[in-house]
């Protein structure tokens, strides 16, 4: 079986290596990807269109806003699917607790984490809010924020983390993020533009059309951050306890 599977693998490898000879050289400024009018347009016009210095954020939340919205929806659906799959699935095994380690939280670990958590969470907000002018954004900030809750669960136990961020609220916050994202898109649609055409928001906010896009992007990123935070923690909570949401690691 293993030797047979090597044949297609090696065939694919030979094909890919053969194709790689025609790929552009490493770092070549003349590669098709760098020469394409799309990315050239993004680099040249992001500043004019949106006043956002970070092109990645501008492309993510504005030019490709539709894509990002549904990526967020995918994250949300994955989280909900995990809930649906694991909820009430392990009733039979409720008695099998012998594998779980039940020890007191370590003093050094908990005190270090106690000092660390606020810094991590403030850093998450910084990454989220500063995503326009430096590397960062909703996905990154959301993951950092979710990691802080996972750290609580790892250093104390899951119950402590769930007391701070209950599972129900996870679902609520995740849904809220998507509603926020789609709401900004719908608001700009009702103001006369197209869906996710943030420039129309300038009609109700005292800013220029470019700055309206700038600030709407922040709102959209906050929505993404909320969803990602909640889903990351909910994934951990469900997977580490097989959906029981107590005990666990």
């Amino acid at each position: 079986m293993k030797k047979i599977s090597l044949i297609p693998v090696l065939l694919v490898g030979a094909l890919l290596v053969y194709a790689a000879q025609d790929f552009p050289e490493w770092g070549s400024p003349n590669s098709p990807a760098s020469q394409s009018p799309v990315s050239s347009h993004f680099i040249a016009n992001t500043g004019v269109d949106t006043e956002v210095p970070n092109m990645v954020t501008a492309v993510l939340a504005d030019y490709r806003g539709f894509d990002t919205m549904f990526e967020t929806v995918v994250v949300f659906i994955a989280g909900m699917a995990v809930l649906a799959i694991l909820k009430n699935s392990s009733k039979k095994k409720a008695g099998s607790k012998e594998f779980e380690v039940d020890v007191e939280p370590d003093l050094i670990v908990t005190n270090t984490v106690r000092l660390l958590i606020p810094v991590i969470q403030i850093f998450a907000f910084y990454v989220l809010a500063h995503g326009h002018v430096s590397p960062g954004g909703g996905f990154q900030g959301g993951v950092v924020m979710g990691a802080s809750f996972i750290l609580i669960a790892l250093s104390w136990d899951l119950d402590t983390a769930l007391a701070r961020f209950p599972a129900d609220r996870c679902t609520l916050v995740a849904g809220l993020g998507i509603v926020l994202y789609a709401g900004i898109g719908l608001l700009s649609m009702f103001l006369g533009g197209e869906f996710l055409d943030y420039a129309e928001l300038a009609q109700i906010f005292p800013v220029s059309r470019e700055m309206a896009r700038y600030h709407a992007m922040l709102g959209v990123e906050i929505g993404v951050g909320l969803t990602v935070t909640a889903i990351m923690f909910s994934l951990y909570a469900n997977l580490s306890t097989e959906g029981r949401l107590k005990g666990g690691l």
Partner: peptide, 9 residues
Amino acid sequence: LTAIVVGVA
């Protein structure tokens, strides 16, 4: 960027 996060999910 989006592929990584969706990949995790």
